[in-house]
Design a protein around this nucleic acid. Structure first.
Lengths: 175, 175
DNA sequence: CGAATCGTTGAAAGCAGTCAACTAGGGTGG
DNA sequence: CCACCCTAGTTGACTGCTTTCAACGATTCG
């Protein structure tokens, strides 16, 4: 949250996700549970000692961190350059990709979080989210049900932000 | 970049910064040099072997990654919830904090990047950036000069987004 | 039943984007 | 040397998307 009360949600956590870095000297986010949750807590020093002795695990964590950075950049691109509708659609698609891995029914997408949370995650207002969901429903893309969404079209719809990359500029190569 | 040509700049790199993760199997961003640059390239496999043998360095990289995630979240908050003016002011302040460490003159802030780059970093248009700079100049906050900005006021101005944190919701504690 | 919260919908306002014109500086070639 | 072009940057007028403000329906809980 900002000092003046504006809130932003950084992400939604699923089973097995780490909540923060073992190096951070203070928390920079708060965490709210929106459904039944079990949290495992590791004493910092013992965890660090463990990591020191298990470089493979350490590598794994670094790799995960890299993926998180990548995801954050994707989100930055979305927040900075996407329209409200693109933001919502992208959220639906990526959320489906995440919970889909966990064996949910293909066309039934649970939305355990409130509209307020979706809005705060996408940098929108709840009214805009509500309106856009209504719009997608009119276009027969989704059906809004109390527990979440029923996806009507082919769920294979590609991400709007399929990216293209420019060739990197030539650089001086050093040792 | 998005497929349809919209661009977003993830960050500006200064001396000593790493460009990407040793684990990423492909590049997800391109890099452009906006001034004289020297780039050090490490062969992946040898670098990984080196890391494996130096857990301290590995820890350091993980710590850096954590800081980068933190910075990305800060940027996400800014892009999602800030007004255009807040974005620009926050950029000026944080940019000053970064180059200031490197011994630049206190009130002279170089802006080696183009307006276009600032706009793409903040999710704005060049016109908006230009207008806001003019506005800040009218308000005697900065003076726009060809090489960058001259900061007029006290440079100690606090970040707009000084954050406040909610108490975390109680959770079940596991082993 | 009343209160509170969540979600939806409508109307109006405002901020930033789009389109366009203009200036200034730098490089190129005649 | 100057005409020309190209790019970067600035400024203005207008549009439009999202927010804001407000009212209303649905659901839950005491």
């Amino acid at each position: 949250m900002t000092a003046d009360g504006r809130k932003h949600i950084v992400g939604f956590v699923l089973q097995g996700d780490f909540l923060n870095s073992p190096f951070a000297d203070r928390h920079t986010c708060s965490v709210d549970a929106i459904s039944q949750a079990t949290v495992s807590q590791f004493p910092r020093q013992r965890f660090l000692t463990f990591l020191e002795a298990h470089p493979t695990t350490l590598c794994q964590m670094l790799e995960d961190a890299g993926e998180e950075i990548e995801a954050a950049r994707e989100h930055i691109l979305l927040l900075g350059r996407g329209t409200a509708e693109e933001k919502l659609v992208e959220f639906i698609i990526s959320w489906r990709a995440r919970v889909g891995r966990r064996g949910a029914l293909a066309n039934l997408l649970p939305l355990p979080m409130a509209r307020r949370d979706v809005a705060d995650y996408l940098g929108l207002t709840i009214e805009t989210v509500s309106r856009l969901l209504a719009k997608l429903e009119r276009e027969n893309v989704v059906r809004v049900i109390p527990e979440g969404l029923r996806l009507m079209g082919p769920t294979e719809r590609p991400l709007l932000f399929e990216r293209s990359y420019m060739a990197a500029a030539p650089v001086n190569r050093a040792t």
